[in-house]
């Protein structure tokens, strides 16, 4: 079942002469883990903004075509109504946390919705547990490490119990271990709770293996849309400049030299397994 659908979506920011999205038609199914990638300025972030109504309600500009999210027509819904279905986690951890304690920040969205206090308490506890940050619930967000801050940001969105969670380059300021933890949390939420996840990411080395649907954009258009193994090994992806995981890249350069592995690897473990087959064959 499609949870997000766009049809011929074209959008231009106010004062801009070029469309940031051009004729985008995609379909995302319930429970999918989508990795949305492409060079800087390709329109990934703009597309995400369309999913929770920041575009066009917050930014203005001119939108043509249709966007439907969880059955709601985005152009006809207020952002605060969409916020209950679609959660957005931003790139910069410090600019999306405003309160002076973690639990207060996590409660922010629920407070805005006027949810009763004991229900807020329950949902905050739950969201903190799911993201593994119960132990820092009373700390001030700006005293935390970037990785912890980003987990708080995820908890903030999770507390609203969204159907879709969008994460816009959530790990670009984090070190690899911090990034790994974020990806683990995201993939667990996707698997255990069935939250449809859209991850915008350049670093496919770490994120690629979680995806079951990849969308590649370039200059406002959707260039590739489909199953990750096919896309990562396609010549188009390389030409657009997608940062293919090194494990997959090794498969490619071996194939160029006439050594073909049975399966396309998405991560080092898979690559090692396929290589072992080739090496022990002889």
């Amino acid at each position: 079942m499609a949870i997000i659908e766009t049809a011929n979506l074209t959008y231009t920011y106010p004062g801009s002469t070029r469309s940031s999205l051009q004729d985008v038609t995609i379909e995302i199914k319930k429970g999918e883990f989508v990795v949305l990638t492409g060079p800087s300025g390709c329109g990934k972030t703009t597309l995400c903004r369309c999913f929770n109504g920041l575009v066009p309600h917050f930014y203005g500009g001119e939108l043509q075509g249709d966007v439907t999210v969880t059955g709601l027509n985005v152009t006809q819904q207020a952002i605060c109504d969409l916020a209950q279905h679609v959660g957005l986690v931003f790139q910069s951890p410090e600019n999306q946390l405003f309160a002076l304690s973690v639990e207060k920040d996590v409660a922010f969205g629920l407070e805005n919705l006027g949810i009763p206090r004991d229900e807020i308490q329950k949902r905050v506890d739950w969201a903190l547990r799911m993201t593994g940050i119960t132990n820092i619930r009373e700390r001030a967000p700006h005293e935390l490490s970037g990785g912890q801050q980003q987990r708080v940001a995820i908890a903030c969105v999770l507390a609203m119990q969204p159907d879709v969670m969008i994460l816009d380059e959530p790990t670009s300021f984090l070190d690899p271990v911090g990034a790994q933890k974020i990806f683990d949390v995201i993939s667990r939420l996707n698997k255990d709770l069935g939250i449809t996840t859209i991850l915008v990411e350049h670093r496919l080395d770490l994120a690629g293996k979680f995806a079951n649907h990849v969308i590649v954009m370039d200059e406002g258009k959707v260039m590739l849309d489909g199953e990750p193994r096919g896309i990562f090994t396609s010549e188009d992806a390389r030409l657009i400049g997608v940062g293919i995981p090194k494990a997959t890249r090794l498969y490619q350069v071996l194939r160029e030299k006439g050594v073909s592995l049975k399966r396309i690897p998405m991560n080092p473990e898979e690559a090692a397994r396929s290589l072992r087959e080739v090496l022990t064959l002889d």
Binding site: G87, N112, G114
Partner: peptide, 25 residues
């Protein structure tokens, strides 16, 4: 920064209802 903050606030249902509740009392 303030623009990003505004975006984040909007995305978390800022102004959804006049009758806001509060975690702490």
């Amino acid at each position: 920064r303030s623009l990003e903050l505004a975006e984040a606030m909007e995305s978390r249902a800022w102004g959804a209802t006049k009758k806001r509740t509060n975690l702490y009392v």
